[in-house]
């Protein structure tokens, strides 16, 4: 049967065609195609790894940022508290200084009042003693108009001196 008997001419042409096809493709096409395909597979793999890495980094960055923000908030609260504390302290201090100053001023005032009082007292005393002297002089003058009285006084004084000695 013809179908089961390979025809020589056909075998020959098939062989020629197949060898030509093989050499053309093996030289110019397949190595390039295989290389390109593998390169692209590599590229895609690398791209996926890179994307995953980037995503992880991004997630990390978010966490980091959250941490920093929280820290900043804490710090802010701390600073505010400090400021409040400082404010009260300053007020306290100011109050204390003010009261101390007031004390001093009032003390000084008292001292000066005292001085003034003393002075006025002294003056008053002097005036009073002068007045008393004048009064005494007047009284004396009035009493010493008579000679008898003068003599008596002299005597008396003399007696006194004598008793003293």
């Amino acid at each position: 049967m013809e179908l089961f008997k390979p025809e020589f001419g056909l075998v020959f042409w098939m062989f020629v065609a197949f060898l030509c096809l093989y050499f053309i493709l093996a030289k110019f096409a397949w190595p390039f195609i295989i290389k390109s395909m593998e390169q692209r597979a590599d590229l895609i793999d690398k791209g996926v790894a890179y994307a995953q890495q980037a995503k992880a980094n991004l997630d990390n960055a978010k966490a980091e940022a959250d941490k920093v923000i929280a820290e900043a908030r804490n710090q802010q609260a701390e600073i505010l508290r400090e400021a409040a504390k400082m404010k009260t302290q300053i007020i306290e201090e100011a109050k204390a200084t003010a009261s101390a100053e007031a004390q001093k001023v009032s003390e000084a005032a008292q001292v000066s009042i005292e001085q003034a009082r003393r002075e006025s007292e002294k003056q008053l005393k002097e005036e009073v003693s002068e007045l008393a002297l004048q009064i005494a002089e007047k009284i004396l003058r009035a009493n010493m108009r008579s000679d008898a009285a003068q003599k008596e006084l002299v005597n008396k004084l003399l007696n006194e001196v004598e008793t003293k000695n």
Binding site: F8, G9, W13, M14, F28, A29, I33
Partner: peptide, 27 residues
């Protein structure tokens, strides 16, 4: 001795050319 380009031989050439066209289109 028969080296004729028969229907099958011609078909083989057509197939080979088609394969070359296909593969080179990828390249």
């Amino acid at each position: 001795l028969d080296f004729s380009i028969t229907k099958n031989a011609f078909g083989i050439f057509i197939a080979a050319i088609l394969v070359i066209l296909m593969v080179f289109s990828i390249k």
